[in-house]
Design a protein around this nucleic acid. Structure first.
Lengths: 227, 227
DNA sequence: CTACGGAAGATTGCATACGATCATTTCCGG
DNA sequence: CCGGAAATGATCGTATGCAATCTTCCGTAG
């Protein structure tokens, strides 16, 4: 019944890759389409995405490895439920990893990275003036992602990436007037990177994440589905 | 020669679980049985462990998620090769995460954790006196693992666990007389946990990992293992 | 002798099929 | 009327088979 909506039925349905499927599912988890505790049935997902259970299983295992779902053998796969303590620890972990990334980035950055960061800074400043909050949030994410990438360490990059996904999952970031200060701090960090001043970059990032921490508010357990 | 351990060839072979298989493979990667760049054939592994390719694939994907192998589509699964820079960054990441774990553990530890740590400390002191270096290394790992677990944060626990595996993979730890100092520091950390002194625990752990860092030497690229 | 192209072999990726285990329901006894 | 145990249904875990893709090898042309 009603397989039409699920099919996403177009003429050319390229088979989706397990990685892409995992990304899609993670996106739905993060956006709350699948609430915590929700059961994900392999057969259902297989039919929804027009593939067999094998790639679905693989996607679910990927998400399990990232901590977004929890698999109980012979029982099912459920969207993970994080406690408030777990959520708080996410921010705390990021709070020590991002300064490290900033420090490393000051040493290993390329000019291309610097240019990219400056571009994001410019766009962010513009978005700030235009009060485009959604764009601002996205640029903020891009800034931190690019800075992490500039650190040149794949392990760190991967860990912070997953953390960021989880943080956007359990937290709703409130964008207050702090955004102005936030982008001022971004500018300072970029300057430190430009001078290849690792210590300053680390210290500035410590201050940045610490003051940003106040902007994060735990998302209500069951949101009324806002898009 | 035909390690009997590989076959596990006894009378009653219970089917191995994908997680256990992943652990076994990771152990071989870490021990250098499978050198970096080595190709892991699904069919081979399936036959070796007496299962079909499906659980083998799942194990390989787990290891891919942890970063021990790299999968090239339609081509094969290869043991990952880490650069010296990547290896150095492993220690640096752990260097900021373990102090955080120590700090948290000072607040969330249970008496059971404390007892366990004290027991490990006692065993470690004994092993130190007996100059049982192998036992000492294992107890050191256990100490840090239990302390991390005592932090009560699953995310942190998981990240540090994987890091530890990678570190033992690419580094060979040299156990000098520093071991005496090391266990003295362990004792101080336990005392801080006992007092629930988070700041001291963090500071002590910072000092500990910093001085321990000198004991880690990059493992020679090719141990000459061909199998 | 070297470079290029194609075909054969090998290996992964996925679909289908079957067995194992868990959750729920129903039936029987207290 | 209620509680426990067996049966039933649903779902996960694994095995087998086939299609898609990559790699290698060999033949041919330059």
């Amino acid at each position: 019944m009603a397989e039409s909506a699920a099919r996403a039925g177009s003429s050319k349905d390229r088979r989706i890759s397990p990685q892409a499927l995992a990304a899609a599912l993670r996106d739905r988890v993060v956006r709350g389409v699948y609430p915590p505790g929700h059961r994900l049935t392999e057969d259902d997902l297989a039919e929804q995405y027009g593939v067999s259970r094998i790639p679905v299983r693989e996607a679910l295992r990927l998400l399990e490895g990232e901590g977004f779902v929890r698999v109980k053998p012979y029982s099912g796969t459920f969207v993970a439920e994080l406690t408030a303590q777990d959520a708080a620890d996410l921010l705390e972990i990021r709070g020590v990893l991002e300064p490290l990334a900033a420090s490393r980035a000051a040493e290993t950055r390329t000019d291309a990275h610097l240019d990219g960061l400056r571009q994001i800074l410019a766009d962010g400043t513009a978005a700030l003036a235009a009060e485009d909050l959604e764009e601002l949030a996205e640029l903020n994410t891009k800034f931190h992602a690019l800075l992490t990438e500039a650190s040149g360490n794949s392990t760190l990059n991967q860990i912070i990436g997953t953390l960021q996904h989880k943080i956007t999952w359990v937290y709703s970031v409130e964008l207050p007037r702090r955004a102005a200060d936030s982008w001022a701090e971004h500018r300072l960090i970029i300057n430190a990177l430009e001078r290849s001043d690792a210590d300053s970059a680390r210290a500035l990032m410590v201050a940045h994440v610490r003051s940003a921490q106040a902007a994060y508010r735990l998302r209500p357990p069951l949101p009324g589905q806002d898009a």
